[in-house]
């Protein structure tokens, strides 16, 4: 089963937990209104009044980072969830039934892996346009093959095992065996894939938004903040540093979780 007592997993859980807590609190309360401009306090360095300083419009960076992290997290969560659901159903069905559909989907899968994920995301953005919802759509689509491949492999392995055979002999329906009997057994493998996908989703969203083809103003995002912050590097380095570190913490937390769950460190 899952070994959740190792140090890597715990470190990941702590970092992710703290980030989640800040994000959740940020949904109902931030020290300042993230969009409130304050002409009197432009580019203020970090202080007690503004923990991470203010930006070129006098907006409180801490509040903005919290809001941006929330937005980035939400985008990652929805896209991973979408990829997971579609991937599990597709992978489960093809792994169970096999046949030419299975062959075809796997070939398609192999071909898709030839495109680095940032490249695929860029192509999808070129096709559907930028913006919050298109990013979610593009990333969700990106994760389908990952989950489908893993579920398919596991189902193909499990379907030869005795418990599946006996369930069959007892007359249990295919769908019930697949999603009630087999699925719980592949959850451990799925968990580490979910964590690494989260990691990739945060990175991809931040990269796309940084490039200016992701989340568009006025929607918040850590990547977009980093892009804005680059113009004010000399006068307000804390702006870039805060949004960048928030990205690192999200990525690091999920990376450690995935590794602690016995998954790959790179995908």
């Amino acid at each position: 089963m899952i070994d959740t007592h190792n140090r890597t997993f715990r470190a990941g859980a702590v970092i992710t937990g703290i980030m989640l807590l800040i994000i959740l609190v940020g949904l109902v309360w931030t020290p300042y209104d993230p969009n409130a401009m304050n002409g009197a306090a432009k580019m203020a360095p970090p202080s007690l009044a503004h923990l991470l300083g203010t930006d070129n419009f006098g907006r409180d960076i801490f509040s903005r980072v919290v809001q941006g992290a929330g937005a980035t997290f939400l985008i990652a969560a929805v896209s991973v969830a979408a990829g997971l659901v579609i991937g599990v159903v597709l992978g489960g069905l093809t792994g169970w039934y096999g046949g030419w559909v299975d062959e075809l989907l796997m070939r398609l899968n192999d071909t898709l892996t030839a495109f680095p994920s940032i490249l695929l995301a860029l192509v999808l953005i070129a096709l559907f346009g930028s913006g919050k919802y298109n990013i979610i759509f593009a990333l969700g689509l990106l994760f389908v093959p990952t989950f489908a491949r893993i579920v398919r492999m596991e189902v193909a392995k499990q379907k030869e095992l005795d418990y599946v055979r006996s369930a069959r002999l007892m007359g249990v329906g295919s769908m019930r065996i697949l999603f009630v009997h087999i699925l719980p057994n592949i959850v451990p493998v799925l968990l580490s894939t979910i964590a690494i996908s989260f990691n990739n989703a945060v990175l991809a969203e931040a990269s796309m938004s940084y490039l200016g083809v992701g989340v568009q103003p006025p929607d918040p995002s850590l990547g977009r903040m980093l892009n804005e912050a680059q113009s004010y590097l000399l006068s307000a380095p804390w702006y870039a540093l805060s949004s960048g570190v928030a990205i690192v913490l999200l990525v690091l937390g999920f990376g450690l979780l995935s590794e602690g769950l016995g998954g790959e460190t790179d995908a």
Binding site: L203, A206, L226, G244, I247, V248, V251, L252, G255
Partner: peptide, 8 residues
């Protein structure tokens, strides 16, 4: 270091 995106 593994978690720091190159653009940052």
């Amino acid at each position: 270091f593994m978690a720091v995106p190159p653009f940052f």
